[in-house]
Each structure stands twice: as structure tokens, then as C-alpha cells.
């Protein structure tokens, strides 16, 4: 039995190495399945919880155009959460169970959403900076080894492309506007820069799952590689906007053709991961409330569907 199992695992790895996608009914190591469920559901939870900080400004958006764009964007995030939950469901996880894990605090989601949105400039910063970071993480996932996840990510990335642009446009409008608008933009960047760098996860040396995930091609770049890419991409954009990146160690390194930059406050990172972010409680509470207060609605729809079915069968 054991040798047969080994062969299966080897065959599986060979398919991965050849870049042949794994599909729901294919044989897969249990650890691969579990890792994927964990990663995809975390990703879905991040979309779901990620609706809250931006949703916080839909009712206060400063123009009708911005209100429409922001609502459409937050709605997209609901859609992305849904695509991702669907992908995880093909692996035998139920959405209700994944949500229960979110609500109980067992499942994680991106720490960035545990920070508060305090000004309108936060909508620009989230779109430009946070979505920019998310896209770097997500584009490689369009080629991830698990078919349904990769397909969900293709859809997500296609839809995300307007998110970053609308964020940048908000920032540009602020930076070209009145002095208080520019100050609002700078203040938002000051608050979001470091938490955004944390989005790529712990340093490679402290990221125990990276190696296996790379081998399975669930992940295609390491945390540090992506973080470096992000800084190199964003610094010129901040310069274009006339904003200052809040890092006094930031410096172009000619030899590596990239920026050197300061170290993230890892103590803060782990605090937030452990649920002690400034809005961690509020975010989880909001999601739990929505779910619990919606229970009677979901039950009513099921009860009605059952009645209809019964009547149709009786007729």
C-alpha cells in the first residue's frame, strides 16, 4: 500500500512540475488539499472582511461619481469572495463551515483590513497601495497549480484592474487639489505604507510554509521577492504624486537595481495577526452580526423552496 501511495505522490508532483493543472476530482495529497483550503478560504475571507473598511466610506463619498465607483468596487470584492469560496468548495470545504471558522477566529484573513479608514484619502490609498500589493500577490496565482483557484484568480485579476486605477485617480486628484487635500493624501500614505508592506507576510526566513507551497506551485514567488517588487514599483508612483514614502532608510541601490528599505515593525505585524489590530474586534463582530442577523432570511428562503417543491410534487 505504502509504495503505491508514494507512486501516486510522485506522479502528482510530476504533473505539477510539468505545469499540468490539478482538477477537483484528481488525486492529490491530503496536505495539498488542506493547504489549498486554508489559503483559498483565507483569501476569500480577506475579500469579505475587506469590504468593511471601504464600505465605511460608501455613504460619505464626496461625489456621485465616486460613490458609484466605490460601491461597484466593494461589490466586486463580494464577488471575488464568492468566486474564491466556490473554488474552495470544489475541495470539499463547505462555505458555511469556512464562515464558521472565520467567525470563531480560527481562520485568518489579511491583517491589512484590521486598520481603520479615517479619511477619504484612505479610499485612494487602499485602491492604489493595498490593491497594488494584492495584485502583485494575485497575478502569479492565475497560474497556480489548482485549476479552480487559478480560474477564479483570472476572473479576480481581470476585475481588479480598475480598482488600482480608481485608487490612483483619487490620489492624483487629491495631490493636484487644495493643500488640505494633498495633506490628506500624505497622511493616509503615512498610515498605510507599513501595514501594506506587511501584506506580503513574514520574512522568508520566518515563513515555514513557503518552501512546500513553492514546490506545489500554489505559490510562485517568496514573500520577500514580492515585497521588493512592490517597493520598486510604488516608489516612482509616489514620486509622481509628489508624496513622500515614510521610510528614512529608503534608498536606490544601483548594484541590485532596486530600492533598499527599512524593516517592517514585525512586533506590530504579529500583534495584528494574533487579533490585536486596531479594528480586529470590530471587523469580526460586523461579519458575525451580518451572518447571525441574516440567519432567519436564509432559513425562510429554504423553507419557502421546500414548500414549493412539496406543492409541485403533490400536484
Amino acid at each position: 500500500m505504502e509504495t503505491l501511495e508514494l507512486t501516486q505522490e510522485e506522479q502528482f508532483q510530476a504533473r505539477i512540475d510539468e505545469d499540468i493543472r490539478i482538477e477537483p476530482k484528481d488525486w492529490m495529497p491530503e496536505a495539498y488539499r488542506k493547504t489549498l483550503i486554508r489559503q483559498i478560504s483565507q483569501h476569500a475571507h480577506s475579500e469579505l472582511v475587506g469590504m468593511l473598511p471601504e464600505g465605511n466610506w460608501i455613504t460619505r463619498a464626496p461625489s456621485l461619481k465616486r460613490k458609484s465607483i466605490l460601491l461597484a468596487k466593494v461589490q466586486d470584492e463580494a464577488g471575488h469572495g464568492l468566486y474564491l469560496y466556490s473554488a474552495a468548495e470544489t475541495l470539499g470545504a463547505s462555505r458555511d463551515q469556512m464562515l464558521a471558522d472565520l467567525h470563531s477566529g480560527k481562520a485568518k484573513y489579511s491583517s491589512i483590513f484590521n486598520y481603520p479608514t479615517l479619511s477619504w484619502a484612505d479610499m485612494g490609498t487602499i485602491g492604489w497601495l493595498v490593491d497594488g500589493a494584492a495584485i502583485l500577490n494575485q497575478v502569479p496565482l492565475c497560474r497556480t497549480s489548482y485549476g479552480p483557484y487559478a480560474r477564479a484568480m483570472v476572473r479576480v485579476c481581470k476585475e481588479e484592474s480598475f480598482h488600482q486605477r480608481q485608487g490612483f485617480e483619487i490620489m492624483q486628484t487629491l495631490c493636484e487639489g487644495a493643500p488640505e487635500q494633498k495633506a490628506m493624501a500624505q497622511e493616509a500614505l503615512n498610515r498605510w505604507w507599513w501595514p501594506t508592506l506587511m501584506m506580503f507576510g513574514p520574512k522568508d526566513a520566518d515563513s515555514p510554509n513557503t518552501e512546500q507551497s513553492m514546490k506545489w506551485r500554489i505559490k510562485r514567488f517568496t514573500n520577500d521577492e514580492l515585497r521588493q517588487k512592490f517597493v520598486d514599483m510604488m516608489v516612482p508612483q509616489a514620486e509622481f504624486l509628489g508624496l513622500t514614502v515614510p521610510d528614512d532608510k529608503l534608498q536606490w541601490n544601483e548594484a541590485k537595481q532596486g530600492y533598499d528599505f527599512g524593516d517592517v515593525d514585525w512586533a506590530e505585524f504579529w500583534d495584528v495577526v494574533k487579533g490585536n489590530g486596531p479594528c480586529s474586534r470590530e471587523r469580526l463582530q460586523a461579519r458575525t452580526d451580518a451572518w447571525e442577523q441574516g440567519a432567519w432570511v436564509r432559513e425562510a428562503a429554504l423553507a419557502h423552496a421546500a414548500k414549493r417543491k412539496q406543492r409541485a410534487e403533490a400536484a
Binding site: 469579505l48 469590504m51 468593511l52 464600505g55 460601491l71 463580494a78 460586523a286 442577523q293 432570511v297 436564509r298
Partner: peptide, 8 residues
């Protein structure tokens, strides 16, 4: 938005 009874 973000508080509905189910994502759909």
C-alpha cells in the same frame, strides 16, 4: 454593502 444576509 458588506452586511447582507448572504454574499449573493
Amino acid at each position: 454593502c458588506g452586511h447582507g444576509p448572504i454574499l449573493e
